[in-house]
Design a protein around this nucleic acid. Structure first.
Lengths: 220, 220
DNA sequence: GATAGTTTCATACAACTGTTTGAATTGCAA
DNA sequence: TTGCAATTCAAACAGTTGTATGAAACTATC
């Protein structure tokens, strides 16, 4: 083990470069140059390039998921096993949004890395995301307990839409800023969280709005 | 020009292979082998690999966007310049969802290609997506006319959330099926459209649901 | 049917990539 | 200090990739 200096230098350099330039444009040679270590050190310490990327992503994922579960558990304990749906949703999307958004100039390397991972989604990262299902099931369970009258199908759709709004907002934050000409303030993370939670809550609690049949409109 | 046989054979083979195996795993040599043409034909007819991918994506995008605008225009004309917000949202997300979802066994190559493009998002495709803003602005305009009392910020957030739900559902359709153990029926496209439109409509019309402050819950 | 322009082809190119190797160096324990 | 394992290093490896080349085959026009 020793000092692990090389190992952490590689992790730091890789995270920074991937965050700045994306996975497609950064080679192992770029990383070791930035870290000031030898090329072979990557394979010595991590086994392969993919395992290096996986370790970067797993580290951040675990932190986010831990925070999610902490908030969820606290909410359910306080409510005697049933938490209000807004609080559950806040526990679901809050940590992710807080970890990725915020004032751009002071956005951490980790945050920018996670945004990049959300945009590019290379194989090692996709593999990890696929293991996230058990984690999501815990939220589905909490939502079911919170809304016992709601069907499973509606619960899953609500969960899906909540994640959709959070992740899409992160991934397309730049485009939303441009589209809205800066009117949508993505630096105000708590406002974003509140908007996502609010809409997801409505999706899960409101009666279905009957959408007008498009027959006449769509007709030629 | 001649028969264009080689050109279209390349396009068809590329679309099929990319749809099945993803952009990362398919080389030009795979494509020309599948198409039964010479390797140099790709650069002769398309200039480069990226331009080939771009052409594939642009073709499908244009078709979707045309359909979107057709539905939007029809709706606004029928309503004398103002269309109901549900109909606008349906014009926004309907064509995309219909183009990508539907019974898996009979899903077209084009549909599977677009799903792949949504998941992997390779540089030439990202470049094209970035040019989509003007197109989205037309929908923002229609939404503003439909909901004149709503602030611009709310309009943009509603637009953002509508796209979020549609695109995320496409991209993560497999995961949603697995998570819900098949309970969420993604083959019933019109039901998916109705759900997305319904939630987006609520997001745009309902008063803001005041989410509970998380202070106590989140506290250590 | 000769010719000019287009298209196809086999092949080579040139560069880059992640990974491996084996020797050199370092750090620690006996 | 000696010995042993962990670490670092320069160098090469092996394979793949997109692209370029120049000759050959084809097509249509006059």
């Amino acid at each position: 083990m020793a000092s692990d200096h090389t190992r952490s230098a590689i992790l730091a350099a890789a995270e920074r470069l991937y965050a700045d330039r994306g996975f497609g444009d950064v080679t192992l040679r770029d990383i070791v140059a930035e870290a000031g270590v030898n090329l072979a050190a990557v394979n010595y310490h991590f086994g392969s390039k993919d395992e290096l990327i996986a370790e970067l992503f797993v580290t951040r994922s675990i932190a986010t998921n831990r925070e999610r579960l902490r908030e969820l558990k606290a909410a359910e304990e306080q409510g005697g096993g049933r938490a209000p749906i807004e609080v559950i949703l806040r526990a679901l999307v809050g940590p992710t949004l807080r970890g990725c958004l915020g004032p751009e100039n002071q956005r951490s390397t980790a945050a920018r890395f996670m945004i990049r991972a959300s945009i590019e989604s290379v194989p090692p990262i996709r593999r990890i995301k696929n293991r996230e299902i058990d984690h999501l099931r815990k939220f589905a369970g909490a939502m079911r307990r919170s809304l016992p009258n709601r069907s499973d199908v509606d619960i899953y759709w609500g969960l899906n839409f909540a994640l959709a709004m959070a992740h899409h907002t992160i991934r397309e934050s730049e485009r939303l800023t441009k589209l809205s000409e800066g009117k949508c303030d993505l630096d105000d993370v708590e406002d974003v969280v509140a908007r996502v939670v609010s809409v997801a809550t409505m999706a899960l609690t409101a009666g279905r709005v009957e959408a007008k049949a498009p027959s006449k409109v769509a007709a030629r």
